[in-house]
Computed example of a mutant assay.
Amino acid sequence: MPELNRVNGGTSTPILGRKVLRPRQQVEDALRKAVLDGQLRTGDRLPAETELARQFSVSRPTIREALSALESQGLIRKVPGAGGGSFVQAVDHTALGQVVQESMHNLLRLGSISFDEVAIVRQYLEVPAATLAATNRTDEDLEELQELLAEQKRRTVDDPMVAELDAQFHISIARMSGNRILAALVYALHRESEPVSYLDLSPEVGRDTFAQHRHIVAAIAEQDPGAAEAAITEHLTYLRGRIRKHISNQDAATV
């Protein structure tokens, strides 16, 4: 039964109008629904643009616009070359982290947000991640952290792997929290801000950060959330202070 609308005099008239979507929006909505409903599954290749244009009775540019929108939302990925095409992306917490990271990257490059804003939010998220990791970690998780510590100890501060090992350390702790959304957000924030890249990595800073990592692992090993919170807070506060100092020195040098 159509919805009724009261007008002057109490007369009821049916509301027949509905928002008319542009062809691109209709195509985008239909394809999104197919992915979210499971009609298209992870890894499936979508029909070619010409076939989609035929099925939807729209132009190929309209199809391209719809596919680009879906790609920006992390629902599909485009693979160029022979055998390529548009494929359904995994819609999970890892995909969420990648989409958030891409958006963060664009905002940082445009100057819409600052590194310090990202660092503060990362701290707000990494603290509860560490406390949850202390509660939920498994023996395998602890072994992974200890292996990362051992690898960090073997590297000198000028080793190109230092930044990657640091990212693995923080992202692994977030994953051990057991909260996949939290892990995805920490992944995005840490990967994009890459705090080690903003540090003046002197041997002193290398020793300090390694010692702080060791304290974090010790707290998680003891399954002590309070100690984990204190250790990760000390570490992240130290990093922010050193990064601010390094950026200030760089700014002064360019004046």
Rank of each mutant, 00 (worst) to 15 (best):
R77T: 04
E102F: 04
L67P: 09
I113M: 14
A119W: 08
A90T: 06
A69M: 08
A95N: 15
V118I: 13
L96N: 04
L107Q: 15
I120D: 14
R60F: 02
Q73D: 15
G83S: 15
R77H: 07
A95K: 07
P61T: 09
K78I: 11
S112N: 12
I113V: 15
G97M: 04
E71Y: 07
A69P: 01
A95I: 00
G84F: 11
V99Y: 02
I113S: 13
I76A: 08
L75R: 01
Q101M: 13
R77I: 00
A82L: 13
V118N: 02
V88N: 00
V118G: 00
I120P: 02
A119P: 03
S72D: 14
R77M: 00
I113E: 08
G84I: 09
G84W: 08
E102D: 10
V88K: 04
E65G: 07
G84D: 10
F56N: 02
K78C: 09
V58E: 00
R64D: 03
E71G: 14
S72P: 02
G84A: 10
S68E: 15
A119D: 09
S72Q: 13
G97D: 01
V118R: 00
R77P: 02
S72V: 01
N106L: 13
A69H: 13
P80F: 05
Q89E: 15
Q101N: 05
A90M: 05
A82N: 15
S68Q: 14
Q89D: 07
G83H: 09
S103M: 12
E102N: 11
Q101S: 13
G83P: 12
V91L: 12
P80T: 04
Q89I: 05
S68P: 08
A119G: 11
V100H: 04
F87L: 00
Q101T: 07
S68C: 02
A90S: 06
R64F: 06
L75I: 05
R60P: 03
A66R: 08
T62C: 11
P80Y: 00
Q89K: 13
F56W: 09
H105D: 11
I76T: 09
H93K: 12
F87K: 06
